[in-house]
Lab assay of single mutants.
Amino acid sequence: LETFPLDVLVNTAAEDLPRGVDPSRKENYLSDEDFKAVFGMTRSAFANLPLWKQQNLKKEKGLF
Rank of each mutant, 00 (worst) to 15 (best):
L1R: 15
L1G: 12
E2A: 14
E2Y: 11
E2L: 15
E2W: 12
T3G: 04
T3R: 08
F4A: 02
F4Y: 15
F4K: 02
P5F: 04
P5C: 04
P5T: 07
P5Y: 03
P5L: 04
L6V: 09
L6Q: 03
L6R: 04
L6A: 05
D7E: 15
D7S: 15
V8E: 05
V8G: 02
L9R: 01
L9S: 01
L9V: 02
L9N: 02
L9I: 04
L9C: 02
L9F: 12
L9Y: 01
V10K: 10
V10L: 13
V10C: 07
V10T: 08
V10W: 06
N11W: 11
N11V: 07
N11C: 11
N11K: 08
N11D: 09
T12I: 09
A13W: 06
A14Y: 08
A14G: 09
A14I: 14
A14S: 11
A14R: 09
E15A: 09
E15T: 06
E15F: 05
E15G: 08
E15N: 10
E15D: 14
E15K: 10
E15M: 06
D16P: 03
D16F: 06
L17C: 06
L17Q: 03
L17S: 04
L17R: 01
L17I: 07
P18W: 02
P18F: 02
P18S: 01
P18A: 01
P18G: 04
P18L: 03
P18E: 04
R19D: 15
R19G: 15
R19C: 15
R19F: 15
R19K: 15
R19H: 15
R19S: 15
R19Q: 15
R19N: 15
G20F: 08
G20N: 09
G20Y: 07
G20E: 13
G20D: 08
G20R: 05
V21E: 04
V21M: 05
V21R: 02
V21Q: 03
V21A: 03
D22C: 06
P23N: 04
S24A: 13
S24Q: 14
S24R: 10
S24I: 07
S24E: 15
S24G: 10
R25L: 08
R25N: 08
K26M: 13
K26C: 05
K26L: 15
K26G: 01
K26R: 15
E27W: 02
E27L: 01
E27S: 01
E27Q: 03
E27V: 03
N28Y: 11
N28T: 10
Y29M: 03
Y29R: 01
Y29T: 02
Y29L: 03
Y29D: 02
L30E: 00
L30S: 00
L30Q: 01
L30F: 02
L30V: 04
S31Y: 02
D32T: 10
D32R: 05
D32C: 07
D32M: 07
D32V: 09
D32A: 11
D32P: 10
E33K: 11
D34I: 06
D34F: 02
D34P: 00
D34A: 05
D34Y: 02
D34C: 05
D34N: 05
F35E: 00
K36F: 14
K36A: 14
K36W: 15
K36N: 14
K36I: 14
K36P: 04
K36R: 14
A37N: 12
A37P: 00
A37Y: 11
A37V: 13
A37T: 13
V38W: 04
V38S: 06
V38C: 12
V38N: 04
V38H: 06
V38D: 00
F39T: 01
F39M: 06
F39C: 00
F39E: 00
G40R: 13
G40S: 12
G40Q: 15
G40K: 11
G40W: 05
M41N: 00
M41E: 01
M41P: 00
T42E: 14
T42Q: 09
T42N: 12
T42W: 05
T42C: 07
R43M: 06
R43Q: 08
S44D: 13
A45R: 11
A45N: 11
A45Y: 09
A45D: 15
F46W: 09
F46G: 00
A47T: 11
A47W: 09
A47Q: 12
A47F: 09
A47I: 08
N48A: 13
N48T: 14
L49H: 03
L49D: 00
L49N: 01
L49G: 00
L49Q: 06
P50A: 09
P50W: 01
P50F: 02
P50D: 08
L51K: 11
L51G: 10
W52Y: 12
W52P: 09
W52C: 10
K53I: 14
Q54C: 01
Q54R: 13
Q54Y: 01
Q54I: 04
Q54F: 00
Q55A: 10
Q55S: 08
N56V: 13
N56R: 12
N56A: 12
L57W: 06
L57I: 09
L57V: 07
L57T: 04
L57D: 02
L57K: 05
K58W: 02
K59P: 00
K59D: 07
K59L: 15
K59E: 10
K59I: 14
E60N: 09
E60M: 11
E60L: 11
E60Y: 07
E60R: 09
K61W: 07
K61G: 07
K61L: 08
L63F: 06
F64K: 06
F64L: 13
F64R: 04
F64Y: 13
F64W: 15
F64D: 15
